[in-house]
Design a protein around this nucleic acid. Structure first.
Lengths: 337, 337
DNA sequence: GTGAAAGCGCTAACAA
DNA sequence: TTGTTAGCGCTTTCAC
């Protein structure tokens, strides 16, 4: 099972062997062979198979100006939420015969720009953009090179008019607050994400609104973190210290909430007997723990699917009535509340 | 912020604007400009920047026959172990100025073959192959098209001579068994993965060997599952029924172990007071739960890094004394034992 | 120091 | 029904 051959067969090889020109071979291999005689057609197909011919997609793309590939820009693939949405996008893309190139930006603008350059250089037909922050230059580059794109999940301030898939959090978060209220919780803290990201602003605002409506809002109950498991642990220990009789905590995402659950358990709290907690996102692992996490669920799979479909429609210039798609987060009650 | 331009600038545009030919531009842009006058050099660079020029990597690859890209074949990216190793490979690849294309095969041979074809068509410089099963045709294709590759983690039967990165499990698993023994456990069950995959065979054999040495082996304690969280739950309920006084369970991977922990907790067991459990892999989320999972840790990051380095060395024809790299799994004692 | 010319593998008019 | 021709955007000798 060692090296068998070293020269990749090209169309010319097939053409020579069959005794036609590569134009003919090209037509057959691209199924534009209505007017090719069945005999030559079959012969070409047979030889192509024998030779193990695989078309050089670069040469084709050079001419057609399309690659059948879309790019996905993600802040951080180790964040399960992004990983899951990326997977959903990929599945849908594959279903529609597109390939996908992932680029992590680690929330760094320079990396984001170089990712965009890479994708443009690879002639991607479009880009799905899960922005880490405000990225004017990235978007300008895409525009300049006439590359279609859609935004997902995060608003880019000042760019609300771009096509995108957005998840509205208000009702879900408010349902969460009300749910805890109905469970008799009154001291409900909130752990919010960074102010720079609009999505976190929306979520905490919904919390404030419902808390105020219920007459139990206290601004001292709101904490801010960079969302992560470790931050969830730390902030929860802090809350337990600051608000000894706290009986509910709502987190800006599931990772933070899972950290919170760990911290509470270690501190001797029994969840949900002593205290209720709620996450946000509904990533898969929120069900891996015991008790399972009550959370405000984003329709992750639908978001990925919608983004992919939207992009591909835009690429194919399908006329669309609306280029912004709004989905809704919904409370999912499980074991921690 | 609407469309600014629609024509992508090419080298010719730059050349015309500067008043040179594209050959000169090419040399400058590729830093082969020792003998280009600083003036033209600067002018070219300036115009390229103004135009927002991004090189067409396909045109370049067509000539150079290399893409600066490697492919990664993965059975299932939703499996955290594979996701983590993929991420490690990607990080290392990026560090070495390579891009990465991921392909999921969902453990299906046809998907694997089409992934290989895709990668070859995209002129990848090499492939990292985390095989789902036996894939002679895939490897034959790679050979025929002279594409370098390395295997990771799973042996492909009959192909032990291919370059690859392998993780030896024996010592780690045996340490795990001994560890439970020293904790006073005697009825230690084992949940093994599918027989088709060699890696699972090695792990269960190490268990058997140490259990036998300790004089506590009982073949009725060995169960087989398709590893997943759900399967872990189901098999653990089964074990609790079959072996009422079971006091230890070792699982073939962390996902299954986490399912087991859920099941045991629901059944009223206290882990680790009543029973100890051990996973395998040491994926990140094994520390997200409380208590944290004791596990036989694969050096996931190292494996990814090593695979990537090995591949790139092979691509660059660096002479290597050994093309097979062996790493070792190690017991990590945490909260569940 | 820079230009001219050829060609990578393929597609797409247009001819024949 | 098939061949001829041109050219996608770039790199790379070899001339000048």
């Amino acid at each position: 099972m060692a090296q068998v051959k070293v020269k990749k067969p090209t169309m010319l090889d097939i053409a020579n062997q069959v005794g036609v020109t590569k134009a003919t071979v090209s037509m057959v291999l691209n199924k534009k062979d209505e007017l090719i005689s069945p005999e030559t057609r079959d012969k070409i197909l047979k030889v192509a198979d024998e030779l193990g011919y695989i078309p050089n997609s670069f040469a084709r793309s050079l001419i057609t100006k399309k690659s059948g590939t879309i790019g996905i820009i993600i802040p951080d693939i180790t964040n399960p939420f992004f990983a899951e949405i990326a997977r959903a996008i990929e599945d849908e893309a594959n279903r529609l015969q597109y390939n996908v190139i992932f680029c992590n930006t680690d929330n760094q603008v320079p990396k984001e720009e170089s990712a965009i350059r890479l994708l443009i250089g690879k002639l991607v037909d479009g880009v799905i953009f899960i922005a880490g922050g405000t990225s004017e230059t990235s978007l300008a580059l895409l525009n300049q090179h006439a590359v279609s794109f859609v935004l997902v999940d995060r608003y880019i301030p000042g760019c609300e008019d771009y096509p995108g898939v957005y998840c509205m959090s208000d009702d879900g978060v408010m349902d969460g607050v009300r749910h805890l209220y109905e469970k008799g919780r009154r001291k409900i803290a909130y752990v919010r994400g960074p102010r720079e990201l609009r999505v976190f602003e929306y979520r905490v605002n919904a919390y404030k609104e419902m808390m105020t409506t219920l007459g139990i809002y206290d601004e001292r109950y709101v904490y801010e973190v960079l969302p992560s498991l470790e931050a969830g642990i730390a902030v929860t220990e802090q809350i337990a210290r600051d608000v000894p009789d706290v009986d509910g905590i709502i987190y800006c995402n599931d990772m933070t909430a899972m950290g919170g659950l760990k911290a509470l358990t270690r501190l001797g709290y029994h969840v949900p007997r002593d205290i209720s907690i709620i996450g946000y996102d509904n990533i898969k692992i929120s069900q891996f723990i015991e008790p399972e996490l009550t959370t405000v669920a984003q329709p992750i799979a639908e978001m990925g699917e919608a983004a992919c479909n939207l992009l591909i429609n835009i690429i194919n210039e399908v006329p669309l009535k609306e280029q912004k798609i709004f989905l809704y987060a919904e409370l999912v009650v499980r074991g921690t509340s």
